[in-house]
Design a protein around this nucleic acid. Structure first.
Length: 551
DNA sequence: TTTAGGG
DNA sequence: CCCTAAA
C-alpha cells in the first residue's frame, strides 16, 4: 500500500538565463501538500470555474519559434515517491529542502534527500492542457523580477517522448534499486544508484541538473539548444497514439542503466544473499520467500507549459506549477513495469518468474513508470488522495486528462500490479472511491443535458428558416437570447440533430417526439438553405418564406 | 469569437 | 454535449 507519495521537488528553468526552481512536496494519501517554500497547499480551486473557462481566451497557435523564444520552462518534478510497506512497517521519509531563488540568474538547489525506498519513475504525461487550468488563475499579477519573459508551460500530449530529459532539480538521477525486505539487519543500506549522470555529458544537451545531496548552481541557460529539448517534436503526439505509448524514458532508461552499470556497487549484488536466513534450512525454499522492495526514487513530470505574465509573482508561478502537477495527478496514475526494456503486463506473473527477485541482475533493467490511468482497471496511484480531498477542484483537470487518455489502449491498464505485490499498492478501496468520483467529476464538467423542448425546436426552426444555417450567432440572439444555457453551438448542434432526426424513421427517433410538421420544416429549410448558401454569402439573402414560394 | 464538423 | 481547426 502506498502510503506516501511525494513530489519532493520541482524545478523549472527559464531560458533567459533566469532560473527558477520550485519545490513541491506532495504527500498523497495523506493530507500534506506543500509547495515550495511557501508551504503551499493544494489549491482550493485547481480548476477554472465554468465561467472562467467559458471566457477563456483562445490563443493563436504559437509558432514553433515563438515557442522557443518563450521562456523554456523546464518543469521537472523530480520527486520521490515513497513507498511505505505496510507489512514491513518501514516508514520512509523524504526530505527535500528547497531551493534558493538566486539573484544572479542562477539558482541553487540544495536538498537533502533521504529516500530509503522508492522507485524512480516518470510520469508519462497525460494531460494536454494544463493551460486551461492555469489560466484560470491569472488574477495574480504581481511583480516578478526574475521572469522576463512569458513563461510558456505546456503539457505534452499523452505519448510525449522527448529526446531528452533535462532536469534541474533534485533526484534527477533516477535510481532504481531494490533491497531486501528491511529487517533491520542491514543497517547500512546504500542506495543503489544506477544513474549517475556525472559523466554523462552528452549528446543530449544536458545543460545541468542537480543531484541529490548536492548543492549546486544551475548553469545559466541561454543556449538555444535547450529548445531542441523542450520543443522536441517528440513531445507532441496525439492521444490516439497512446495505444503504443510507452513511457518515453524506457529506452532511455535502459540506456542509462547500461551506461552506468559500472556504477553499480558490486557489493549490492550480494544484498539478497545476505538476507538468507541464518538457519537456512533450505536455501531454495527461502529463496522463494524472498521479498523485494523496490524503490521509487524520483519521478518527473514530463513537461509543463504554463503561461504566466511576467508581472506575475513567483508565488503565482508556483501555484501554477502546483496546479499543473495537480492536474497530472488528478487523473490518477498507474504503475507500469518494465524489465529489461520489456513491459510486463501479466499481473499474474510472480516476481520470480519475471526474474526480479532472483538475482539482482535484473534489477539493472527494472523500470517503473507512472502512467495515466486508463479504463476501469486502471490503478490510480496518487489519486486516492486527490479524490478524497480535491475532487471538486480537479474537474477541469480531469477533463483534459480524460480527453487525452481515453483513447489509449486499454491493454496497458493491467500491468500495474505486476510488481506491487509487495503490498505497496493497495488499490482496491481507494481505487473504487476514486472511480466514482472520477465519473462524478466527469459528469460535473459536462454540462447537464437539456433536451430541447418542442417549443425550443419551434423557435429554432423558425429562426433558421429566416436566417439560414450559417448564422448561429444570430439565431441565438434572435431566438434564444434569454436562454443562457443555449449557446450558438448548441443551436447549431441541435439543428444538426434535427435534420438527422427528420431523415430517419419515426421509430428510430428517441426522446420527446418532435412534431412531424416541425421536422418537415426542418427538412425544407435545410434543403432550401443548402441551395441558397450563396445568398448568405452575398449581400441579399432572400427571405426563406418568400423564396420558398419560388421553389 | 464564430463557424463548421467530427467525436 | 464536447472539442477544435479555421476563418
Amino acid at each position: 500500500m502506498i502510503h506516501i507519495v511525494k513530489f519532493s521537488s520541482i524545478a523549472s528553468r527559464a531560458l533567459d538565463n533566469h532560473t527558477v526552481v520550485l519545490c513541491i512536496q506532495v504527500m498523497a494519501s495523506h493530507k500534506v501538500l506543500e509547495f515550495g517554500d511557501d508551504g503551499y497547499h493544494l489549491p482550493a480551486k485547481a480548476r477554472a470555474s465554468r465561467s472562467v473557462r467559458k471566457r477563456r481566451i483562445y490563443e493563436k497557435k504559437v509558432s514553433g519559434d515563438e515557442k522557443m523564444c518563450a521562456i523554456e520552462l523546464l518543469a521537472t518534478v523530480a520527486g520521490s515517491l515513497l513507498l511505505e510497506g505496510e507489512s514491513s512497517g518501514v516508514s520512509v521519509q523524504n526530505t527535500v529542502k528547497k531551493e534558493t531563488p538566486a539573484e544572479e540568474n542562477t539558482v541553487k538547489l540544495s536538498e537533502d534527500v533521504d529516500v530509503r525506498c522508492g522507485f524512480s519513475s516518470v510520469i508519462t504525461d497525460p494531460c494536454k492542457k494544463v493551460e486551461n487550468v492555469v489560466k484560470g488563475d491569472d488574477s495574480d499579477s504581481c511583480e516578478v523580477e526574475n521572469l522576463s519573459q512569458e513563461l510558456k508551460l505546456g503539457v505534452n500530449g499523452g505519448d510525449a517522448r522527448p529526446d531528452v530529459v533535462v532536469s534541474i532539480g533534485s533526484n534527477i538521477s533516477t535510481e532504481v534499486g531494490a533491497c531486501g525486505i528491511d529487517d533491520g539487519l542491514h543497517g547500512s543500506r546504500d542506495d543503489v544508484n544506477l544513474f549517475s549522470r556525472d559523466n554523462d555529458d552528452d549528446d543530449e544537451n544536458f545543460t545541468g541538473y542537480i543531484r541529490p545531496r548536492v548543492t549546486r548552481t544551475v548553469p545559466r541557460i541561454g543556449d538555444r539548444r535547450i529548445r531542441k529539448i523542450l520543443a522536441s517534436k517528440h513531445w507532441k503526439g496525439g492521444s490516439k497514439n497512446n495505444a503504443d505509448a510507452k513511457p518515453w524514458y524506457c529506452s532511455k532508461r535502459s540506456y542509462y542503466l547500461h551506461q552506468h552499470q559500472r556504477n553499480y556497487p558490486i557489493k549490492k549484488r550480494r544484498y539478497f544473499d545476505s538476507i538468507s536466513d541464518s538457519n537456512s534450512d533450505d536455501y531454495r525454499l527461502k529463496a522463494k520467500t524472498y521479498k523485494v522492495r523496490l524503490r521509487i526514487k524520483s519521478f518527473r513530470v514530463p513537461e509543463l507549459f504554463v503561461e504566466i505574465p511576467e508581472t506575475a509573482t513567483v508565488g503565482s508561478l508556483k501555484r501554477m506549477v502546483m496546479e499543473a502537477v495537480t492536474t497530472i495527478l488528478g487523473d490518477g496514475l498507474r504503475v507500469g513495469l518494465m524489465v529489461q526494456g520489456k513491459k510486463v503486463r501479466d499481473d499474474s506473473k510472480t516476481l520470480l518468474q519475471t526474474g526480479i527477485s532472483e538475482e539482482n541482475t535484473h534489477l539493472d533493467s527494472l523500470g517503473f513508470s507512472l502512467e495515466p490511468c486508463l479504463e476501469t482497471t486502471s490503478q490510480p496511484l496518487l489519486s486516492s488522495y486527490l479524490s478524497e480531498h480535491a475532487c471538486d477542484d480537479l474537474t477541469l483537470c480531469q477533463d483534459s486528462m480524460l480527453n487525452s487518455n481515453h483513447d489509449t489502449a486499454p491493454s496497458q491498464a493491467d500491468d500495474s500490479r505486476a510488481l506491487v505485490p509487495i503490498g505497496l499498492l493497495e488499490p482496491q478501496s481507494p481505487n473504487r472511491k476514486f472511480k466514482r468520483t472520477e465519473q462524478q467529476q466527469h459528469a460535473a464538467h459536462r454540462r447537464i443535458r437539456r433536451p430541447f423542448s418542442v417549443t425550443e425546436v419551434e423557435a429554432l426552426v423558425q429562426a433558421v428558416e429566416n436566417l439560414g444555417t450559417g448564422r448561429w450567432r444570430d439565431v441565438k440572439v434572435r431566438a434564444f437570447e434569454d436562454a443562457e444555457h443555449r449557446t450558438y453551438v448548441d443551436l447549431k448542434d441541435k439543428w444538426k440533430t434535427l435534420v438527422h432526426t427528420a431523415r430517419i424513421s419515426p421509430q428510430q427517433r428517441r426522446g420527446e417526439p418532435v412534431p412531424q410538421v416541425l421536422l418537415d420544416r426542418v427538412l425544407k429549410a435545410h434543403a432550401y438553405w443548402s441551395q441558397h448558401q450563396m445568398y448568405q454569402l452575398q449581400s441579399e439573402p432572400p427571405r426563406f418564406q418568400q423564396a420558398e414560394a419560388l421553389i
